[in-house]
Simulated assay, not measured.
Amino acid sequence: MPDRFAQKLLTWYDQHGRHDLPWHHNQNAYRVWVSEIMLQQTQVATVIPYFEAFMARFPDVQALASAPVDDVLSHWSGLGYYARARNIHKAARQVVEEFGGEFPEDQEQLESLTGIGRSTAAAIIAQAFGKRAAILDGNVKRVLARYHAIPGWPGQTKVLKQLWQHAEEHTPDERVRDYTQAIMDLGAMVCTRSRPDCQACPVQPGCTAYAAGETGLYPGSKPKKEKPEKTTWMLILEDREGRILLERRPPSGIWGGLWSLPELDPAYGTEELQEACQQKLGLDCAEPELIAGFRHTFSHYHLHIQPARLTVTGQSSVADSDNQRWLHRDQALTAGLPAPIRTLLTQPEQNALL
C-alpha cells in the first residue's frame, strides 16, 4: 500500500472523521443507497434534513416502491437534480420486483439498477455489506488527483481510468466501511476544492501536488462553455376559489415530472398575455400583474423567468387531469415543485412590480 495511505487515513478518521451522520444509524443497503444518491452534487449539511424526512415517509424500499412518484418528488422538492428522484423511485421498484425487496451484494447487479453507477454500487457494497469495493465520488477524485498529481479533468476517460486505478490500489481489505467514509470525509473537510487545509491532512507527506506547491492545479477544471440564455413567461393563474393552476413537466428534461406553472413564449408582450391565455388555455383573465423576474441557472443554460399573475374571470375550462391541476396555495406548496417555483408561490406579493 503506497505510503501507508489507508492506514494513515484511518488513524485520522478515528479522531476527526464523521461517525454520527443519520445514515450511519440502522445502517443497511437501503439507507446507504438513498444517502449516496442524495449526496451526489449536494453537500452533507443540505442532505441531512431531506434524508431524515425521506426516511420518515419511506422507511424501507417497499414503502418507496409502492409510493406514487408525485409523493417521492414532493419529498425531493428543493434538493435539485430531480432525475435522481425519478431514478430512485424506478430503482426501488426494480429491487422489489427483480430482487425480492433485498439489495443484491453483487457489483454488476447493483449497477443494473436505475441511477446506480460504479462508485455508488461500491459504496453500498462497502458500507452496507462491509465488503471490499473502491469508491470514486467527487471528493475522492479530488484527493487522489492531488495526491498523485494527475493532470486533466476527471470527466475525461484517460484521467478517470488513472483515478480508478489508484482508488483500487488504496482501498484496504480491512475496515473498508470506515475507509470509504474516511476518504469522503477527507475530501469534504480537509482536501477541499478551494483553500485545502494541507497542514491538517494525514496523507500530506506523500502528496505530490503539495510537495510541488501546486494543489490548486488538481483536479483539472472542466472545459468551460458559455451557457445559452433562455427566457419564459410563467403564469400564476388564480381562479375565483383562490386556486392556482399547476402543470406537470414532461417526464424527462428540466424539472422532469415535477409540478410547475404554465409557461408562454417570451415573444408575447405583456398586453398579449390575456389573449394568449384564452387561446392556449381557454381561460378568460383580468389584466396581468407583473412580478419581479429572476434568473435560474441550470447545468447547461440560464433561464430568465418573468412571472405574471392573472385572475381567471370566467368559468374555468381546464379540468383536473394527470397533467393539470387546480390547487389552493397551501396544497400547491405540498406538491413536488421546483425550488424557484415554490419560492415564487410562497410570497409573490413581495415581488410584485409597481
Rank of each mutant, 00 (worst) to 15 (best):
R342H: 12
K224T: 13
A332D: 01
I125H: 00
R177Y: 15
D178Y: 05
A121C: 07
G220L: 02
E52S: 13
S321I: 09
S299T: 12
G101S: 10
L136K: 00
C285F: 02
G213S: 06
G256K: 05
A45E: 13
T334F: 10
T343F: 11
P223E: 05
H16V: 00
S194A: 14
K224F: 15
R146K: 12
P196V: 08
P266F: 03
R329G: 01
A339N: 11
L281E: 08
S112Y: 05
R177Q: 15
L9A: 02
P223M: 01
Y30F: 04
A319H: 14
V203P: 03
H304Q: 11
T297Y: 12
D70N: 09
T171F: 03
T231R: 05
L144K: 08
P49R: 13
T171Y: 05
K141S: 09
G220V: 08
V318Y: 00
G187K: 02
T334R: 13
L310E: 06
P205L: 02
A267V: 11
S194T: 15
S299M: 08
D239M: 09
V34H: 00
F51L: 12
Y268W: 03
A182S: 10
E229K: 12
G117I: 03
Q107G: 10
T114A: 14
L144S: 07
R18F: 08
L303K: 01
E169A: 13
V47N: 07
R84Q: 14
A335I: 02
E272F: 01
R86S: 06
A133W: 04
H16S: 12
D239R: 08
A128K: 00
L110W: 01
W23M: 01
L245I: 06
E263V: 00
K90A: 09
H328K: 15
E272V: 05
L136R: 03
H166E: 11
L354Q: 11
I88M: 15
R86Y: 06
A212W: 09
K141E: 14
R93M: 10
A182G: 10
V61Y: 04
L113E: 01
K158Q: 15
E97T: 09
W23R: 07
